[in-house]
């Protein structure tokens, strides 16, 4: 019983502690450069700013693929330079790629990073359930005595 209590208490403590840690970590934007294709694992949802510059008349396709839903969340034909933004609704991997005949470089910057609602719900849920369970156990033990 004590072991269970220890686990529950630790879970609650971790749940409380992750918020300040995360807040610190997420203020920094993530940036990267895409040449042909590049997958990135992001630790939170956010907004990806895409920008690429190519010579005038160069045609290429910018694509952002979300492996979780198995669909492209952005697929845009561009000529010359391109600016775009795309919502990254959840954490995890995304695949940024450029289809082109000639090399085009695209810069990716991920800003507005915050945990998604699902993740927050999981944290609140797990933390809350642990707290309730712990309370219940303590209450029952108190009553026995």
């Amino acid at each position: 019983m004590r072991l269970l209590k220890a686990i529950l208490l630790s879970t609650i403590l971790i749940t409380i502690l992750v918020f300040p840690i995360e807040k610190n970590a997420l203020t920094q934007p993530i940036s990267g450069v895409v040449l042909v294709g590049r997958g990135m694992i992001v630790p939170s949802s956010g907004v990806a700013l895409l920008s690429s510059n190519a010579e005038d008349g160069t045609e290429y396709t910018v694509r952002v693929f979300d492996p979780e839903i198995g669909e492209a969340i952005l697929e845009r034909n561009a000529t010359g330079s391109f600016r775009g933004r795309v919502m990254l609704k959840h954490s995890g991997p995304y695949y940024f790629s450029i289809r082109t005949m000639t090399p085009v470089t695209m810069a990716v910057r991920i800003i507005n990073r915050y945990p998604s609602v699902t993740v927050l719900n999981i944290r609140y849920g797990l933390g809350g359930v642990s707290a309730l369970l712990l309370a219940a156990i303590l209450l029952m033990e108190g009553r026995k005595k």
Binding site: A6, I7, S10, L13, I14, L17, V18, I21, E22, A25, L26, I30, G32, V36, G37, R38, G39, M40, I41, V42, P43, S44, P93, Y95
Partner: peptide, 22 residues
């Protein structure tokens, strides 16, 4: 438990793993 949990968590938030595949 708590120390590892925090370390794991902060390690994961730092995580900007990239991969390439075609």
């Amino acid at each position: 438990f708590i120390m590892l949990g925090i370390t794991f968590f902060s390690g994961l938030t730092r995580n900007d793993v990239v991969f390439m595949v075609s």
